[in-house]
C-alpha cells in the first residue's frame, strides 16, 4: 500500500464530497434555515430580548453572512472527517465488499455507511432547524446522537463478524440480528427531550432537504473515492527490476 497516496486520496475525496454537500445545503436547505431564523428573530423581538432596529439587522446580516459562507468550509471539514472514516473502513473491508471493481465497492460501502451511521440515527434523532432546541439540553442531545451513531456503526462491525462465521444458508441471521439489536436500541434510547414549537411544515421540509443533502454527500463520496482508487490504485503491487 502506498501510504501517502492512500492518505491524499482519502482526504481529497472527502474534502470534495464535503464541498458538494455544502453547495447542496446552500441550494436546498438554506431557505429553511433562513425561515427558521426569521421566526427566532420575531420571538426575540416579541420577548424584548432584542429590538427591531437597523443596528440589529446590520449585526444579523454580518453573522448570517459568516454562517452561510461557512457552509462550504464546514462541508470541507466534515467531509474530510467522514472521508477519513470511510477510508479506514474501506481499506479493511474492500476484499469482502461485493462489486467487480473498487469503484463499485466504494459506492456499495457508501450506501452501507449512509444507512447505518446516518439514516438510522436520523430516524431516531432527526435534524432540527434553528428555533427547535433548548440550549440547556444541547450536551445531552449531542451525546445521545453520537452514541446512537457509534452503537449502530459498531453494531454493523459486530454482526459482520457473526456473518463471516455463519454458513451460507444461515447468513440471514446476521441481518436479522442487526435489525433486532437496532430496534431494541431504538426503543431503549431516550427521546429528544425538547418540545417542537416551530411550524411542522417548516420542520418537516427542513428534515427532508437535510436528508437529500446528506445523501448527496454520501453518493458523491462513494463515486469520487471509488474513481480515485480505481485510477491511482494505492494498493497496486510494486514492480521492481533486478539485474
Amino acid at each position: 500500500m502506498k501510504t501517502v497516496l492512500f492518505l491524499i486520496l482519502v482526504l481529497v475525496s472527502g474534502c470534495f464530497a464535503g464541498m458538494i454537500h455544502g453547495l447542496a445545503n446552500l441550494a436546498i436547505v438554506e431557505p429553511y434555515l433562513d425561515e427558521a431564523i426569521g421566526i427566532e428573530n420575531q420571538n426575540l423581538f416579541a420577548s424584548g430580548e432584542e429590538v427591531d432596529s437597523p443596528q440589529f439587522w446590520v449585526e444579523y446580516n454580518n453573522y448570517r453572512y459568516w454562517q452561510k459562507g461557512g457552509q462550504i468550509l464546514a462541508g470541507a471539514i466534515l467531509g474530510t472527517s467522514f472521508g477519513a472514516l470511510f477510508g479506514i473502513v474501506f481499506v479493511f473491508s474492500k476484499n469482502v465488499l461485493p462489486g467487480s471493481s473498487n469503484a463499485r465497492k466504494a459506492i456499495f460501502l457508501s450506501g452501507i455507511m449512509w444507512f447505518t451511521i446516518y439514516f438510522i440515527p436520523f430516524l431516531k434523532y432527526p435534524a432540527n432547524p434553528p428555533t427547535v432546541g433548548d440550549p440547556e439540553t444541547v450536551v445531552l442531545r449531542g451525546i445521545l446522537y453520537l452514541a446512537f451513531i457509534a452503537i449502530s456503526g459498531f453494531g454493523v462491525v459486530g454482526f459482520y463478524q457473526l456473518y463471516k462465521r455463519l454458513q451460507k444458508n444461515k447468513k440471514f441471521v446476521a441481518y436479522l440480528g442487526y435489525a433486532v439489536f437496532m430496534s431494541t436500541v431504538f426503543i431503549i434510547m431516550p427521546q429528544n427531550p425538547d418540545e417542537i414549537t416551530a411550524p411542522m411544515d417548516l420542520v418537516n421540509g427542513f428534515r427532508i432537504m437535510s436528508v437529500f443533502a446528506v445523501s448527496i454527500f454520501w453518493i458523491a463520496l462513494g463515486i469520487i473515492f471509488g474513481a480515485f482508487w480505481q485510477k491511482f490504485q494505492p494498493d497496486k503491487p510494486v514492480k521492481a527490476e533486478i539485474h
Binding site: H21, G22, G70, Y125, G133, P135, Y145, F206, A213
Partner: peptide, 11 residues
C-alpha cells in the same frame, strides 16, 4: 448552518 443541515444538535 452545516451543523443543523447535517443533523447535529446545535443549540
Amino acid at each position: 448552518d452545516m451543523r443543523h443541515a447535517a443533523g447535529f444538535p446545535c443549540h
